[in-house]
Design a binder for these strands. Sequence first.
DNA 1: GTCTATATCGGGATAGAC
DNA 2: GTCTATCCCGATATAGAC
Lengths: 194, 194
Amino acid sequence: MRGFEGATVDRIAARARLNKAMIYYHFHGKKDLYRTVLRSIFTTMGDGLAAIASSNAAPADKLDRFVAAFVAEGQARAHVAPIMLREIAEGGRRLDEETYTVMVRVVRAMTGIITEGRAAGQFGPVDPILLYLTTVWPIVVYLATTPIRNALARVAQFDVGRLDPERFIAHLQMLNRHAVMPAAAGAGPAGELS
Amino acid sequence: MRGFEGATVDRIAARARLNKAMIYYHFHGKKDLYRTVLRSIFTTMGDGLAAIASSNAAPADKLDRFVAAFVAEGQARAHVAPIMLREIAEGGRRLDEETYTVMVRVVRAMTGIITEGRAAGQFGPVDPILLYLTTVWPIVVYLATTPIRNALARVAQFDVGRLDPERFIAHLQMLNRHAVMPAAAGAGPAGELS
DNA sequence: GTCTATATCGGGATAGAC
DNA sequence: GTCTATCCCGATATAGAC
């Protein structure tokens, strides 16, 4: 919630009922600990999502499940979404190649489903990366904004209930279902760009 | 790029060719300066986007233009997207009510277009807030990831060219066009949720 | 209003005992 | 392996001269 800088090694040690020096004994430094934790988290998430991608359900069903599973995984680990956003905001400065590699498995899980659907002729010509962008990142922001939604709602006066997880998931699934419809995606004029 | 904590008052002053003490003379502190800048930025962005929303084009066209304009505004101010992501990640701790109010104008610009389209019977029953979430936040992430896209592409081996702004904008416009189609949105079974 | 010099403090990292 | 005490630096903020 307060980020890499906000988490002091003292507090981390206290939370783990350890002494600060132990952290420096087991890890090369704060950043090394951070990367280790991230690799662990994204390995777990990647496993679950890759399992969905490689199941033998229909691609369209996998896509729906991917969305629901990503939301569920994110809710079960509420600290992950803010971390992802912060890393993006900071240009991924703190990540090393190995951590990137682990994260990319999540991307592949989703793009694999789409590629499969296209190869099977069940999906139209939608770009996997673009659909990944418009699927995963609203989820991450949705998850990360959960704590402040009330604060914003007070100012904006919208009904928070409309943003409950089930409705949000259904909305995303609806968007994706249309996006992958054969002969629906890339087609059509792009509209005014300026 | 390095966030609120990463930007030292010394460097800010140097960049402005001023002395650090001057900043503390004109503002109550670093946070006060930060809020003032954010209010200014979002006022400008809100003006442009509200102008699109209140123009007398058709709602569907406004939606397309909103997407293109948001991307353009974001590109013209490359530092804004990371700031938005970081603020979300930190639970909006640094924002005060006044800053929230200014930011909400951007939300209203988009939701207003959808509400108008629905009232005119041109849009189906899509939720304005949900469509805002799935429209604006992919854009913000897209903008914020521009610097690291190459690093990721190297590991993931995808073609970066597929992510150029025009294609991205067209993809989002396509998604939204389908989402607001009468009798297309909220309709249909939601699929498996677990 | 504009500057230099400095107070102050929090946090990463380590020395060194046991 | 595990701890306490400490070094050290960088950053916010202010005092006070001009």
